[in-house]
Amino acid sequence: MNTINEVIIKSDTLSQNKKELSIERRALFIRRVLANKMIVTGGVILFFISLIALFAPVITQFSPYELESTNRLKAPSATHWFGTDNFGRDIFSRVVYGARVSLVIGISVALITAVIGLFLGLYSAYYRKLDHVLMRFADGLMAFPSILLAIAIMAVMGPKAINVVIALVIVESPVVARVVRSAALVIKEQTYIEAMKAQGASAWRIIWGHIAPNILPSLIVQITYVFSVSMIIEAALSFLGAGIPAPSPSWGNILFDGKSVIYSAWWMTVFPGAFLLLAVLSSNLLGDGIRDLLDPHSNKANK
């Protein structure tokens, strides 16, 4: 009975220590995040764009599809904040709903490529034979300009939102896999990996338990880059008519509609363009900030 109590007390102090330490570490981490101007700026902008996208039905008065033939190509005003397009649709609603499309595509492409790239990168770093096969595949895919490859895939599969995601995943996965692989190759040669082998760890344990956590910083930074690039490519695809099908509000579609009237209706180009710029800029800032934060060799990390 006594010993049991002792054990309980002991494990209590154990978890107590752990709790204190993790609270301390969390506080330090938050302090570092807040001290990083790039993360804060990028994060705040991205947060606002996400809020706008999330509450799109609440903040817009008009449906993005609603045609008002009497109100065509109206300049920005109190009722139509960003003006109307050549079909009389409210640009503000279309831009706000377009944010939904862009963010959803950006996030889903980023997450899916993260998983695929992590798998391919880790295993090709660990198994040399697999590496030869996978990386030649990746070389092949990366030999195409990414937009061209995406257009080709879209042409085969047809213009649908889900196909845009698939095309972008095919285009971006090799890039992520490359980054993961090169980081993993460095980690693989570290003494602590050899030490793990000397302790009898299996390949699975070494790959997922010891290599994966150490390449996460590179992966996260790369993923923010994939996020912004896929928003740009999505807009480009839609602009070229190979992306989100026409009536749907997407920044690329609005830009395309505005192209023919660019001299008479600047608002159709400026507002979606500005939103695209903000979204891409903020996620790039976020990525750079995270890189500085996570890289122990960068001097900004020690604030």
Binding site: T191, A198, N214, L216
Partner: peptide, 13 residues
């Protein structure tokens, strides 16, 4: 086995 270099033989993460 104990390795030579204690600085690099532990997983930093």
């Amino acid at each position: 086995m104990i390795f030579q270099d204690p600085m690099t033989s532990l997983n930093p993460s």
